[in-house]
Simulated scan of single mutants.
Amino acid sequence: MTNSTRAGKRERLAGAAVRVLHEQGVEKTTLADIARAADVPVGNVYYYFKTKDQLIEAAIEAHGRHLETMIDTLERLPTPPERLKALLHGWIEERDLTAQFGCPTGTLASELDKRDDGLDRAIAKVMGGLLGWIESQFRAMGRDDARELAVALMAAYQGVALLTNTFRDPGLMAMEGRRLERWIDSLA
């Protein structure tokens, strides 16, 4: 097996872990579920990941890579308000998935918080990266209260993600997204 084949299977397993953990939750998900979703024989999973926690760590790393890619894409936009509104649009585009399963990162963070293995700190670091980026956008807009505004934006998203999931109503995400766009415009 070549290194690229190994890396491909490992990444497939990590990607499947992100998806299955989001859909089923940490406690209900088994290594066999993830192997099935990745189309990898369950026995091969142990070659890449010895424990479920290692696979969860790989899923957290995949969340981090996704965030980095998303930020790189958003950084190509010319102004901080445009970048923040594009972030909102990305969240809104995922409203049907959010209605069904909740925010992928937020629900994982909530589940991992109930465990005593340190994985909660790893997902907090990923979420902290997004919070820091949002803060930098508000700071680039000349806002002295950039940290507070970043927390408010992230809290509004996490709150509406919870409500969207609780009520299975994607329209809530769209409605709050429009309000947050107007809010961002009012701050520029």
Results as ranks from 00 to 15, higher is better:
Met1Gln: 12
Thr2Phe: 03
Asn3Ser: 10
Thr5Met: 15
Ala7Thr: 11
Gly8Leu: 13
Gly8Lys: 13
Lys9Met: 10
Arg10Trp: 05
Arg10Asp: 00
Leu13Phe: 04
Gly15Ser: 15
Ala16Cys: 03
Ala17Asn: 06
Val18Asn: 10
Gln24Met: 15
Glu27Asn: 10
Glu27Ala: 15
Thr29Ser: 14
Leu31Pro: 06
Ala32Cys: 06
Asp33Gly: 02
Ala35Pro: 09
Ala38Gln: 06
Asp39His: 07
Val40Cys: 08
Val40Ala: 02
Val42Arg: 15
Val42Asp: 12
Val42Pro: 13
Gly43Ala: 08
Tyr46Cys: 00
Tyr48Pro: 09
Phe49Arg: 05
Gln54Thr: 02
Gln54Tyr: 00
Ala58Met: 10
Ala59Ile: 06
Ala59Phe: 08
Ile60Met: 07
Ile60Glu: 04
Glu61Asn: 05
Leu67Ile: 06
Glu68Ser: 15
Thr69Gln: 15
Thr69Arg: 13
Glu75His: 05
Arg76Lys: 12
Pro78Leu: 00
Pro81Arg: 01
Arg83Pro: 10
Arg83Asn: 03
Leu84Gly: 00
Lys85Thr: 04
Ala86Lys: 01
Trp91His: 11
Glu93Asp: 15
Glu93Lys: 15
Glu93Pro: 07
Glu93Asn: 14
Glu94Gly: 12
Asp96Cys: 02
Leu97Met: 12
Leu97Val: 06
Thr98Arg: 06
Ala99Arg: 01
Ala99Asn: 03
Gly102Phe: 02
Cys103Gln: 01
Cys103Pro: 02
Pro104Ser: 08
Leu108Thr: 00
Glu111Tyr: 12
Leu112Thr: 03
Asp113His: 14
Asp113Pro: 00
Lys114Val: 11
Arg115His: 12
Asp117Thr: 11
Leu119Thr: 02
Asp120Trp: 01
Asp120Arg: 05
Ala122Leu: 12
Ile123Ala: 04
Ile123Cys: 07
Lys125Gly: 09
Lys125Met: 05
Val126Gly: 04
Gly128Asn: 01
Gly129Lys: 09
Gly129Asn: 11
Gly132Thr: 11
Gly132Met: 09
Gly132Ser: 14
Ile134Phe: 00
Glu135Asp: 13
Glu135Cys: 00
Ser136Pro: 14
Arg139Glu: 11
Asp144Ile: 06
Asp145Phe: 09
Ala146Cys: 04
Ala146Glu: 03
Glu148Cys: 05
Glu148His: 10
Leu149Phe: 03
Leu149Lys: 00
Leu149Met: 07
Met154Ala: 09
Met154Arg: 07
Ala156Gly: 12
Tyr157Ser: 05
Gln158Leu: 14
Gly159His: 10
Gly159Asn: 06
Gly159Gln: 05
Val160Cys: 07
Leu163Trp: 13
Leu163Gln: 14
Arg168Cys: 04
Asp169Glu: 13
Pro170Trp: 01
Leu172Pro: 02
Leu172Met: 14
Met175Trp: 12
Gly177Leu: 04
Gly177Asn: 03
Leu180Asn: 06
Arg182Pro: 01
Arg182Leu: 15
Asp185Thr: 12
Ser186Gln: 12
